[in-house]
Design a protein around this nucleic acid. Structure first.
Length: 426
RNA sequence: GGAGGAGUGGCCGAGUGGUCGAAGGCGACGGUCUUGAAAACCGUUGACUCUUUACGGGGUCCGGAGGUUCGAAUCCUCUCUCCUCCGCCA
C-alpha cells in the first residue's frame, strides 16, 4: 500500500508512474477523499475536545437541581452529534483505506518502462544451452516415459492441472528441496516451514488481497497460500523490530496453491503451471537504504542453485507494464528448456520497498539517536527456486538419447549418490 | 468438543464509572557523583494521527468489534488468543 499523504504530496509524479504500469485510477475520487477525510477528522476532534472539557466540568454540577439537568441535556445533544461525526470520519477513513489497497506499487526508477513482456530487459545470460545429437524432448514426455511424472493419474484423482510424482520423482522433489535449503542456509537464511492456511489479513498484508481474491483457493475462512511469501512475510506483521536485527533472512519450503484463474489454455501441457506445487522461497526484511543491494544478493542466492545444477539461464528486469502489483522492481530468472526451446521463469525476485510493510505494519526502530521514530522495513523475496520447474529443467537439460536422465554432481548427494534416473528404479 | 481462568505501556504489574495514556517496579537512555566503573540520587522513556512555517495545540488506542452512559481500562453483548482440567486425536 502506498502512503496516501505522500501520494497526495507527489500527485502528478505518482499519476505518471502508475500510468506506466497501465493502472486505471480514479484520481478525482482520491483527491476528494483526502479533502473530505481531513475535514471530517477536524470536525470530530474539535467536538470531542469540547465534550471532554465539559464532561469533566459536569462532575461538579451533576447533583445540582438547577444546573444538573440542564447541562446533562446539553451534553446529551453534543454526544449524539459526536456519534454522527465519528461515524462519518470512520466511513471516510475506511473508504480511503480501501482505495489505497487497490493501488499498485510505484515502480522503482531502475525498472524499465514498457507495456508488456516484450519490453522486459535481459540483464545477463549465464551458461550455454547444451547441444544434443538427438531431438530433445519436452519434460512431459521425458518424465512420463521414466514413470516419475504421472499426469494421467493426477487427472483421475484431482482433475486438470495437477501432478502426481512417483518413484524417483518423489526423491527428486525432496532432494532438490533439501539442496536448495542448504544453499540458502550457507547464505545465512533461517529455515522456516510455515502453515499453508492463512488468515485473510495475511493475504492483504502481502498484497494478494483484496484485489486478486479470485486467484486464491479458500477453505472456510482461510486462504491457501499461493506462495510461502505470505506466511513468512506476515511472521512480523504488527511488530516493531530493532535495527540490529536487520536484515532478517528466511528460507521457507512449502506447497503453493493457485487457482490459475485467467490463464485458461496457457501452459496446459506438463507441469509448468499447476494448482499445487512446491517452492523454496527466500524472504528478507531490510532497512530501506539496503533493500536494492539486498535484492541483488537475494537474486544471486537464487542463481547459485542454477549454477550448481549447471543449468543455463538468463535474468530479466521486468518492465513497468509486466511487474507484479506489489513490486517496485522485479527480476525474473528464466531457465533454458531445450525440449521446448524456450526460457521459462523459474524464480521471480522482487523488492516491494515498504509496500507490504505498510500493509502488514512491519516497522523497525532505528538505532542510535535518542528518540528514533519508527520506520517501515523493506521486504524482498524470491523463489530459490520453484521445485517443480527445476525438475522440468533437469529433465529437459539432462535427458539422454536412451531416455535416461543424468543427475548433476551437486545434486547427487541428495539422491543417495544416484547418478542416473532410469525407468523402474527407485 | 466440555468446564473454569486470564488478556493493561519494551517487560512485570496496580487500577470496578469522571481529574487515567494509565500507580509502582524492572529495563533502557541522559545527568549528578567517581580517576573509571558500580552503588546511590535526579530526570527522560509507547504507537498512530489531525493541525501548524515553526513553537505548540488537539484526537485515537488498556486483545478485537459493538453497546449502555453526559462520561468507560472499569458495566453489558459478541468475538479472538493464551493457560488449567476433562474428552477426542496424527
Amino acid at each position: 500500500m502506498l502512503d496516501h499523504r505522500s501520494v497526495n504530496e507527489n500527485l502528478e509524479e505518482v499519476k505518471a508512474r502508475l500510468a506506466q504500469r497501465n493502472a486505471q485510477v480514479d484520481w478525482d475520487r482520491f483527491s476528494s477523499l483526502i479533502a473530505e477525510r481531513s475535514q471530517a477528522i477536524q470536525a470530530f476532534e474539535q467536538r470531542r475536545h469540547e465534550q471532554k472539557t465539559k464532561s469533566t466540568e459536569f462532575g461538579r454540577y451533576a447533583r445540582d437541581p438547577e444546573e444538573g439537568p440542564k447541562r446533562r441535556a446539553e451534553l446529551k445533544e453534543l454526544s449524539d452529534l459526536i456519534k454522527d461525526l465519528e461515524k462519518r470520519q470512520g466511513d471516510l477513513e475506511a473508504e480511503l483505506e480501501e482505495f489505497m489497497l487497490h493501488l499498485p506499487n510505484v515502480p522503482h526508477s531502475s525498472t524499465p518502462v514498457g507495456g508488456g513482456e516484450e519490453d522486459n530487459v535481459v540483464v545477463r545470460t549465464v551458461g550455454e544451452p547444451g547441444s544434443y545429437d538427438f531431438e530433445p524432448k519436452a519434460h512431459w514426455d521425458v518424465g512420463t516415459d521414466l514413470g516419475i511424472i504421472d499426469l494421467e493419474t493426477a487427472t483421475v484423482v484431482s482433475g486438470s492441472r495437477f501432478v502426481l510424482y512417483r518413484g524417483m520423482g518423489v526423491y527428486l522433489e525432496l532432494g532438490l528441496a533439501m539442496f536448495m535449503l542448504d544453499v540458502a542456509r550457507e547464505a545465512g537464511y533461517e529455515p522456516v516451514m510455515p502453515p499453508y492456511l492463512v488468515l485473510r489479513d495475511a493475504m492483504v498484508g502481502t498484497g494478494q488481497l483484496p484485489k486478486f481474491e479470485e486467484d486464491a483457493f479458500k477453505v472456510d475462512d482461510y486462504f491457501m497460500i499461493p506462495t510461502a511469501e505470505v506466511p513468512v512475510t506476515n511472521m512480523h506483521r504488527q511488530t516493531i523490530l530493532e535495527e540490529e536485527q536487520l536484515p532478517i533472512k528466511y528460507v521457507a519450503y512449502s506447497s503453493c496453491f493457485r487457482r490459475e484463474a485467467g490463464s485458461a489454455g496457457k501452459d496446459t501441457r506438463g507441469i509448468t503451471r499447476v494448482h499445487q506445487f512446491q517452492k523454496v522461497e527466500l524472504v528478507k526484511f531490510t532497512r530501506p537504504e539496503d533493500s536494492y543491494e539486498e535484492l541483488e544478493k537475494l537474486t544471486a542466492n537464487a542463481e547459485t542453485v542454477l549454477q550448481r545444477l549447471e543449468l543455463p539461464y538468463r535474468v530479466s528486469a521486468l518492465c513497468t507494464g509486466d511487474i507484479g502489483f506489489s513490486a517496485a522492481k522485479c527480476y525474473d530468472i528464466e531457465v533454458w528448456l531445450p525440449g521446448q526451446r524456450l526460457y521459462r521463469e523459474i524464480s521471480s525476485c522482487s523488492n516491494f520497498e515498504d509496500f507490504q510493510a505498510r500493509r502488514a505494519n512491519i516497522r523497525y526502530r532505528p538505532a542510535g539517536d535518542k528518540k528514533p521514530k519508527t520506520r517501515f522495513v523493506h521486504t524482498i523475496n524470491g523463489s530459490g527456486l520453484a521445485v517443480g520447474r527445476t525438475i522440468v529443467a533437469l529433465l529437459e537439460n539432462y535427458q539422454q538419447a536412451d531416455g535416461t536422465v543424468t543427475i548433476p554432481p551437486a545434486l547427487q548427494p541428495y539422491l543417495g549418490g544416484k547418478k542416473v534416473i532410469r525407468r523402474g528404479e527407485w
